[in-house]
Write a protein that binds this DNA or RNA. Sequence first.
DNA 1: TACTGGATCCCT
DNA 2: GGGATCCAGTAT
Length: 203
Amino acid sequence: MIGPTWTPREFLSDAVTVAPKLPGQYLVHKTPEGLCAGRIVETEAYGCTYDGVADDGSHSFRGLTGRTAPMFHKGGISYVYLIYGMYSCFNVVTGPSGQGQAVLVRAVEPVIGMELMAGRRKAKKLGKNLTNGPGKLCQAFGITRVQNELDLTGPVLYIAHDDTESAIDIVQTTRINIDYATHGKSFPWRFYINDNPYVSKVL
DNA sequence: TACTGGATCCCT
DNA sequence: GGGATCCAGTAT
């Protein structure tokens, strides 16, 4: 089921190219408490151009800053940031150095370590509520800014291939919660597995 | 040194 | 529908 780890070169394509390839693949995090793995079911690309228009929905839109520095790194590391003062969001940095691109992993389907995930999430309801959102999956997997700028081809936090042959029905649509982005809000850069119950929300 | 608002989640 | 909660980015 879980195959070889993604290689460095697979992260060097543009975010819009990588984002639709991640659903179906596995996100793995090894910690002292145990191992968590999940099948990625939803992603969003950030920081590319669409018909020559820059992505004003991306953190990297206003250039390299202290927070966004990881996005400008060569593809293959993590970019984890704090949102709304209390939740973390996990991104896969993509593209050549200096591009400012990343893919936000918005939801996964738990595969290994559900007990650990449930323990970290203190919600009353478990099940799909464990990881069906960017903040939720980070909480479940124990991903915080401590995991920022980690090598995603390394042994701790990494992407692994799905080694089954099954075809995946991917839906492509606009991204969520970036209404402030005049142009970017209409870019069709959200990708999720059709009918998967772990997708954060459907329209 | 002060202000503003967000790639979210949860409860009402 | 609104509150929690904090820090990066920007303005003063």
